[in-house]
């Protein structure tokens, strides 16, 4: 039994290779096309972090240290070795996890991750998610904001609040947003020390980037990948910060190529 109770989305055949998905600002949506596509040939396990989705938030759980140790617990409790795929904020968690290392963590995919500081002290590597106008955030997060999938929420969701949204959706988004802030307000979305330890990542690693991401740019991604020994870097055209949502087919193809 894990110490923490987590909501977990599971999809696919349990005997297939496991993919542990570590979500970004919102939990992995069961409605997302890429989940069904991945589940055709993989066993997908996607927990909601404490404070996100239906996972409870313990009163003292509020640092990246907690999050990394929680996911080490999650790995302990997975039946088999796994590929860990982290998205955005979850990419930061995945990178920390891979630096810590775990025998069941055998491959790593980072999708538009945050988590490190690269530029000078007056250069902002990562757009401030809580102090940027939602319209601007929406514009920067998507290759084509108008074509974002309905009912699945990535960055800039505040700009698309409409009366079609249910109260439950809004309450869930608000809770996720609050929880994200606990972990990532300051320093904003990075651990100043992480960059110095990425060399410890010893598993095959793919760094995937939406070519149009202007929350964290592909150049940031190239630099990130260069700090991880042997990591491959690939971009996905016509996608922003959420390539798995904007270009699910290209995203799944990249995962399949890497895993096989």
């Amino acid at each position: 039994m894990m110490k923490h109770e987590l909501e977990i989305l599971r999809a696919g055949d349990e005997t297939a290779d496991t993919l542990l998905l570590i979500h970004g600002i919102n939990p992995i949506s069961p409605k997302a096309a890429f989940v069904a596509d991945l589940a055709r040939s993989h066993y997908v396990v996607a927990p909601s972090h404490p404070g996100f989705g239906a996972s409870p938030l313990p009163p003292d759980f509020d640092t990246m240290y907690d999050m990394v140790n929680l996911y080490l617990d999650v790995l302990d409790h997975l039946p088999d070795a796994t590929t860990v795929v982290g998205f955005g904020f979850g990419g930061w968690i995945a990178a920390e996890l891979a630096v810590a290392g775990h025998p069941k963590l055998q491959r790593l995919v980072l999708v538009d991750p945050v988590g490190i500081k690269i530029g000078g002290r007056e250069d902002r590597d990562i757009v401030h998610m809580f102090n940027t106008n939602p319209v601007e955030l929406n514009h920067r997060s998507w290759h084509d904001p108008a074509a974002r999938p309905a009912g699945i929420y990535g960055l800039g969701w505040q700009a698309v609040i409409s009366d079609d949204m249910t109260d439950a959706e809004m309450i869930s988004l608000a809770r996720n947003w609050d929880s994200l802030c606990l972990f990532a307000w300051r320093p904003h979305m990075f651990n100043p020390q992480l960059k110095n330890w990425l060399h410890r990542i010893s598993v095959p690693t793919l760094v995937l980037w939406g070519e149009s991401d202007r929350i964290v740019t592909p150049d940031y991604g190239r630099h990130y990948a260069s700090l991880i020994p042997g990591a491959a870097f690939e971009t996905i055209p016509r996608a922003g910060h959420h390539p798995e949502l904007e270009q699910p087919a290209a995203f799944v193809a990249a995962i399949d190529r890497f895993v096989s």
């Binding site: 106008n133 939602p134 505040q158 309450i171 869930s172 608000a174 609050d178």
Partner: peptide, 13 residues
Amino acid sequence: PQMSKFMPGQLPP
């Protein structure tokens, strides 16, 4: 809006 109604923690969800 990011400094008011969308600022985390301002209202119970």
